[in-house]
Simulated assay, not measured.
Amino acid sequence: MNSQISDKKNETRAKLMNKLLPYLRKNGLQSVRMDEISRVMEISRATLYKYFSTKEEIVEFIVDGFIEYMKELTHNPLDSVQSFGTRFLQIFEQTISLVVYFSDIILQDLETSYPDLFDRFNEAMKEREEKILAFFEEGKQKGIFNQLNGRLLIKQDEILRGMFDVKFLMTNQFTVQQVLYDYFQLKRIQLFKPEKLTAIDDEVLMPKIEHLTQKVTKNLF
């Protein structure tokens, strides 16, 4: 029974956090107050305190949630070209989510005000990077990926922060969906050898792109 109550509470906490994250992405962590948080979550302060005792608890819930999300990177055997395509798509989805939710202002506030949580988040990011590098290396060894520097491919994802900017999108008349689709194609062409590009079917890709478009748009506008 206690387990069911705990699961229900965590489910509600996650739903409340989904309302809060777009606001934090734009406004950061440092200056936001509990009354502001309850307003964004559309609940009373009394209800908020039933789920989170302090702002620090909220920040910890966010960081821990994303650390668990990063750990979800599958360890399924890579026994076919399609399995490499599936893993690559999962990495792409994670990358977009991490870039969207952990904006520069959130990362700066985390480092300044919550250094322990910042260190934990950074450590999880490093572990994720090592998994991705191992994935790239295995793909190269099996003749599926081009012989490219994996760390440069990962570093390249930092340009997404500038691309997911309302001013950038409007100035260049880009849609979020166009940016996501074109960037995915760029990464796929760079990584997969020409004869292996069919590892990800567009019928599988497009629903993922549409889902990510909704997620990104919700956090930008």
Rank of each mutant, 00 (worst) to 15 (best):
N2L: 07
Q4A: 11
L16W: 02
M17I: 09
M17P: 03
N18D: 14
L21F: 02
P22L: 04
G28M: 08
D35V: 09
T47S: 15
K50P: 00
K50F: 04
S53D: 13
S53K: 14
E56I: 03
I62L: 15
K71W: 04
L73C: 07
D79H: 13
S80M: 06
Q82Y: 10
F88G: 00
F88N: 00
Q90R: 14
E93W: 11
T95A: 12
I96V: 14
L110Q: 05
T112Y: 09
S113M: 07
S113I: 07
D116G: 07
F121Q: 01
A124M: 05
K126E: 14
E127P: 06
L133Q: 01
L133A: 01
F136S: 00
E138G: 02
Q141E: 09
K142F: 00
G143Q: 09
N146H: 10
L148K: 07
I154F: 04
R161W: 10
D165Y: 06
Q173K: 13
Q173E: 03
F174P: 02
T175V: 03
Q177A: 14
Q185R: 08
L186V: 13
K187A: 10
Q190E: 13
F192V: 08
M206L: 10
H211W: 05
L212N: 13
L212W: 01
L212A: 08
T213H: 00
V216M: 13
